[in-house]
């Protein structure tokens, strides 16, 4: 091996080493890289009341009920399960039924009490007319696919995945 080939091997070893370390690191800390939990995560895995966490999902159509003042109740769902949410505060402009949102708060007797609600919009852009005609065909429903389980994808049945891909 000449000098250049040695340097080549050193650089290759560096790249491979860091790549492998990164893969192991991120596999081990996958849950920590997740920005939020899904309703399925919170229902299937026991989460202690009052633990501060984030919950992400789609606002279920017809579930939004406005109470006194700014109080609002709604249901959040991923591709499988849903969870009731209560929030007292100013909602983002994009909040509406069918919209993806991420709420920060804690679980209390099966209800998620949110302190903050952020909108998670999707990556689709179109003029209002096109959206209207798509909606008439039942097409612009937001996808539940971006709300991935923090505990791995094994909990998502193939059928739900297929539905998510179509919507």
């Amino acid at each position: 091996m000449n000098k250049r080939q040695k340097r080549m091997a050193a650089v290759a070893a560096l790249v491979v080493g860091i790549g492998v370390a990164a893969v192991f690191g991120f596999t081990a800390f996958r849950k920590n890289m997740m920005y939020f939990y899904t309703p399925t995560d919170l229902i299937d895995h026991k989460v202690s009341d009052n633990a501060q966490l984030r919950l992400g999902g789609l606002v279920v159509a017809g579930s939004v009920h406005r109470g006194d003042g700014l109080q609002v109740d709604f249901t959040l769902a991923d591709c499988q399960k849903s969870l009731p949410v209560r929030y007292d505060g100013i909602l983002p402009d994009l909040f509406k039924e069918g919209q993806g949102i991420v709420a920060t708060g804690h679980l209390q007797h099966g209800v998620f009490i949110a302190d903050q609600v952020l909108a998670k919009h999707d990556e689709n852009y179109m003029p209002p007319d096109l959206a209207k005609s798509l909606k008439a065909q039942g097409g612009t429903m937001h996808s539940c696919a971006p709300f991935k389980s923090a505990y791995g994808d094994s909990t998502m049945p193939a059928q739900a995945q297929a539905q998510a891909a179509h919507s």
Partner: peptide, 26 residues
Amino acid sequence: SVVWWNSLHQGSTILKLGKPNISADM
């Protein structure tokens, strides 16, 4: 990052397999 993990950021619009999810005039 937006594929492997949950994030608030949306997925990629144009570097997506299949048709891009943005209308032609945009």
